[in-house]
Design a protein around this nucleic acid. Structure first.
Lengths: 211, 211
DNA sequence: TTGTCGGCCGATCGCCGACAA
DNA sequence: TTGTCGGCGATCGGCCGACAA
């Protein structure tokens, strides 16, 4: 999973704590949200909260829905002396996102998004067009026909779009996040609430080995 | 699940032992075929085989694939004195089945099958046609346009057929079993080996309660 | 600037009889 | 008797500019 696409898909509001951070784990809060009851046998003593150290953070994306999630491992052993709060680094590349219209088979790309992220078109051509290759969070590439037409002119993705919508099972209201990193174009998906199942809470408690 | 449709779908070769029959259960044979290892903690003593009584037989059909299977419960307690071997009763209604051709969107029904199972057509009409309602193993009904045309004449299912094929995800090589019971028409599916996953073995061992 | 609409064109689907196995 | 083929008509998907919000 590409971490840049992951972050853009998760949205600016998501803040992933850094490895080594010290956090408090609330078993009851976890049990309230989890679909399957967690196994608390590894927790040393049943209190309302347990101080933990984040031992690892792994970024994942659901292979069929592209939903992004993080698997954060907590270590209930004594936290380290230092608790560095790593500042979020900003994306080193521009991005934009747009709501999903229906538009009979195509996708109207906002001008700013298209001109700042897609490869430039030959505007001298009366009907500028090109084929763009876009990579999803899994690294799979999709090709689209990108045209600049209509009166007034606008940027559109035509051929390849319906295949993308059907493969990703997008519905009206879903958003796309386009990114460009050193010439390669990426796309992330943010689904509307009714398009994705309830968020699952994945917390993995490390076994407490001796000492 | 309709037991008559179940039996026709399972085929003439399937013989389901009667409740009360005494059988031998071979744990190793079960473990060899089962996808998930069975729990043998309820088996009184670990021998190569265990004599059991069939305490219940329930017929099921996979809701998405229509694959039929039986869930047979075994009771490892002492089997009863009598072990009646119930003879298989023959189907009290005619049936037939035919291979799945492609035939651009329609299905050519064998003459014998159509004339013995479908409601009779008005052969005086130059283009005999009717709408037939057919029930699957779940009781869901499907409607088809049944015509008798072509030179030479033949029975065909046209409208409604592609919807059925897509819904049931039928592929070339699959077979259909048509049945008629007191005026109602039923259909079962026998999938080709590459159309259905490996058969699963479902054996449920009853817990041994006191005495 | 961009969402939506009707028009239009081409691809596909589905129904048909003609064959021949 | 029935599997397969080519034809062809209806339908649908997809691309288009014209509007107007």
């Amino acid at each position: 999973v590409d971490p840049r696409v992951w972050k853009a898909s998760a949205g600016i509001s998501s803040r992933i704590a850094a490895v080594g951070s010290s956090v408090y784990y609330f078993p009851q809060g976890h049990a309230d949200q989890a679909s399957s009851l967690p196994d608390f046998s590894a927790v040393p003593c049943p209190r309302a909260y347990v101080r933990c150290r984040i031992s690892s953070v792994r970024l994942h994306a659901n292979r069929s829905t592209d939903e992004v999630f993080a698997r954060i491992s907590l270590d209930p052993r004594a936290p380290p002396a230092a608790s560095p709060v790593q500042p979020q680094t900003e994306f080193p590349f521009s991005y934009s996102h747009a709501a999903m219209p229906t538009l009979g088979g195509g996708f109207s790309v906002p001008r700013f998004c298209a001109e700042s992220i897609f490869p430039p078109l030959d505007l001298g051509d009366p009907t500028p067009a090109q084929t763009v290759t876009i990579h999803d969070v899994h690294g799979k590439s999709w090709t689209f026909r990108h045209v600049y037409r209509g009166t007034p002119r606008r940027h559109l993705l035509t051929s390849g779009w319906s295949n993308f919508v059907n493969s990703k099972r997008l519905i009206s209201g879903d958003s796309l996040v386009f990114m460009n990193s050193s010439g390669k174009v990426f796309v992330g998906i943010r689904r509307t609430s009714r398009s994705c199942g309830p968020a699952t809470l994945n917390v993995e408690m490390e076994e407490k080995h001796g000492r």
